[in-house]
């Protein structure tokens, strides 16, 4: 079985070269985003677009023409595969809120655990917008961001920028913290600064609970990363997994046969 990677033969002048495993929108028809902040952000980016370009941009984003996308410090950088051999590079730079505004917003947020919980959980009540406004700030950018694309189309924003805009809105729609990042507050700072406001010092335990994805670095592509490995597993504990789990509720409590079978499967192993 040969998976399909773009080859020269497949180029058709009217359709973009297809990308295997490109980044795609979650919504394949209808509205791209569902929440007010997603819509607002998209509106800020596409308000000046020509309809034809906007439709093409949506189509691109839905088809998965975006090869990769990175967001950092208010700027989105992405690579969009169009009709040309070489993909285009798109950047969208958002305007960050001033530090003072963030400080004021976070201070008030720290007293609103319900809003913190909602934001961390992936939603943003409209109260948040009101909260920003109380500090003369807005959670959504008022003006279109500054965007670039290295394509030769005359329309601006071009379909490539719009494809990226759709994808950004799609991602932001479920992750309000990403929106904060685009507005100048890096995601990891959200909790750090709240902790400060709650007077909670950093813990003295290792925060190694979620391993960081090993960056797919090109230089060490064939090598195991130079991490300090735990060379040998420690002596494993004697755990009776079955006892720990208890009897599955989906077994009839009277169904002795199933229970015994399950026990046997385990205990025969222990005896082995």
């Amino acid at each position: 079985m040969i998976s399909h990677w773009p080859t020269h033969q497949e180029i058709d002048i009217n359709v973009p070269i297809s990308v295997e495993h490109g980044l795609q929108l979650r919504s394949q028809r209808g509205e791209i985003v569902k929440n007010w902040w997603g819509r607002g952000l998209l509106a800020a980016m596409d308000s000046t677009a020509v309809k034809e370009e906007l439709d093409a941009g949506k189509r691109y984003a839905r088809k998965g023409q975006i090869e990769w996308m990175e967001c950092s410090e208010s700027t989105v950088k992405a690579s969009v595969q169009g009709r040309d051999d070489k993909p285009y590079t798109v950047t969208i730079a958002f305007k960050a809120l001033p530090g003072a505004a963030w400080t004021a917003v976070l201070t008030e947020l720290s007293q609103r655990l319900d809003l913190c919980g909602a934001i961390l959980g992936g939603s943003m009540p409209e109260d948040v917008q009101a909260l920003f406004e109380r500090h003369d700030a807005a959670v959504l950018p008022a003006d279109p961001p500054h965007s670039t694309c290295d394509c030769e189309r005359t329309e601006r924003p071009c379909r490539h920028m719009l494809a990226v805009a759709c994808l950004v809105a799609d991602r932001v729609d479920t992750r309000p913290l990403l929106l904060f990042e685009l507005r100048g507050l890096p995601q990891e700072q959200f909790m750090t600064r709240l902790r400060e406001l709650w007077n909670l010092p950093l813990p003295d335990v290792d925060d190694a609970d979620v391993p960081q994805p090993s960056e797919r670095s090109v230089t060490g592509y064939y090598r195991r990363p130079d991490v300090e490995p735990e060379t040998q597993p420690t002596a494993p504990p004697k755990v009776d997994v079955l006892a720990k789990l208890g009897i599955p509720q989906f077994f009839n409590q009277d169904d002795q046969t199933s229970l015994q079978t399950l026990r046997k499967l385990y205990h025969d192993h222990i005896r082995r």
Partner: peptide
């Protein structure tokens, strides 16, 4: 910890 070190030791290839 051992398992996590295994996870981290993955060569990108």
């Amino acid at each position: 910890p051992y398992w996590q070190s295994l996870v981290t030791a993955m060569p990108p290839v």
